[in-house]
Design a protein around this nucleic acid. Structure first.
Lengths: 242, 242
DNA sequence: CATGTTTGTTGATCTGAATCAAAGCGCACC
DNA sequence: GGTGCGCTTTGATTCAGATCAACAAACATG
């Protein structure tokens, strides 16, 4: 459903396979990638790049979670996406960065130098095809999120968010059905277009309604998945039709 | 700024040049396009395709305006984008349609058969490159809109919308500075995540504040561009950095 | 050119979420 | 195992925008 939480793949040349890049690369192409790549780690909370910065490298998230956001002059901020392992950062063909990228947890990136990477995109057709597909997937995710932001109630927004966390959990430990919120209340609020108090209140309400159960601040169980889905405002099978 | 209102280009093989397709095509490629294309016209208000429909053709808007939207089970609807001449409809690699497409005005499409078009995308590298760029542009537009939907006030939303109309007007007749709303109050509301009453009230308020002046329902003048921009909540030059 | 129909305005009232304001809880750090 | 700080919860109040309800203006239609 979203750019948020994409499927992960292992890759020989790198701890993860960069979805956009190496899935169909031959040895020669992989070698070219090796030459222009480097790793960099950011601590939780650190900015990775700011809107308006000159774009000097592209990158793939290797571990951790980063957020893509925009902050207005008066401080209101909207998170427009989450970046998970294998997600791509950067936009071939642009000089400047469009949104702030921030490390939510500790984040390791695999960076690629801009010019040689752009050359690669131009010369290797399957890379631009893959990037097109990724961009279209993210576009769909962004549009789904527009519906959430524009038309859903606070409760529906949170239910949708929880469903997303459940659906995209790294380790789907169905046995216990225990999950973990990747974000603080405030970050969730900025992602859903609400305030942190509203997040807190709605989570409490859903707890009271027997839909979820918390264990500490981050960990939770789903006690009633059907009710959660019901509360999300999405039809039937949560956008399997998409 | 948005997918909405893209720059238009003339094209020999077609009343418009399909931004994604023919900009860099050679004669052979254009000939292949000719073979798989056909025109179709839809009346204002008519649905063009529904979410969930099987995707059988791609298309480029030739004339008119179409909207991309999602309607929830209870009727709440969110417009997630407007499609203008030269904008592309469809998603190579997908079987089904993700959002409803509706003719806002009378719309003429130039349609391409799906299979041969996908083949073309695979075989002609510059087409997938162009489509990637388009998708990335639209992604950016969608994310900007997410900020609007999630964090802007009613007045800011409408000011932003008016600015967009002004910036992207087909004929920038700066002499008179008269513009025309492409949508009804209700459509604007569904695009901005508001109700039609709020649109009407805010437009009246801006009229009272001497920012705009109406002539009939659709036509308006900007009396105070600086104030309009001020009201949009965007910084400095309206996202030229983007 | 009267008449119905759709679209837009304006007013009154309601309400969901924001805002303002304390507490409470967890957690890291001495 | 306190002590302080950053999160989180909860309560009271406000307010922007929704909702409900007329009415008016524009437009199409016979």
């Amino acid at each position: 459903m979203t750019l948020i939480f994409n499927e992960r793949e292992k890759c020989g040349s790198c701890p993860i396979r960069h979805r956009a890049v190496c899935a169909r690369c031959d040895d020669d192409e992989l070698a070219r990638l090796e030459e222009i790549k480097s790793y960099k780690t950011f601590e939780a909370g650190q900015p990775i790049i700011w809107r308006g910065d000159e774009l000097v490298t592209f990158a793939s998230v290797v571990t951790g979670i980063a957020s893509l956001s925009r902050t207005m002059e008066d401080g209101r901020t909207q998170v427009v996406g989450l970046l998970l392992p294998s997600d791509f950062i950067g936009r071939p063909g642009r000089e400047y960065v469009d949104f702030d990228v921030t490390a939510v947890t500790e984040v390791t990136l695999c960076q690629f130098q801009r010019k040689p990477f752009e050359k690669l995109v131009e010369e290797v057709p399957h890379i631009s095809q893959r990037m097109m597909e990724m961009a279209l997937d993210e576009l769909n995710a962004a549009r789904e999120w527009m519906v959430l932001l524009g038309r859903k109630t606070a409760r529906e927004k949170i239910a949708t968010f929880l469903e997303m966390v459940v659906r995209r959990s790294t380790i789907p430990n169905q046995a216990v059905a225990q999950y973990s919120l990747p974000l603080t209340r405030e970050e969730i609020a900025n992602f859903l277009g609400l305030t942190l108090e509203t997040i807190s209140r709605q989570l409490s309400a859903m707890k009271k309604d027997g839909i979820i159960e918390f264990e500490g601040r981050r960990n939770f169980f789903i006690k009633n998945l059907a009710a959660l889905h019901e509360a999300s405002g999405d039809d039937a099978d949560g956008g399997i039709i998409v």
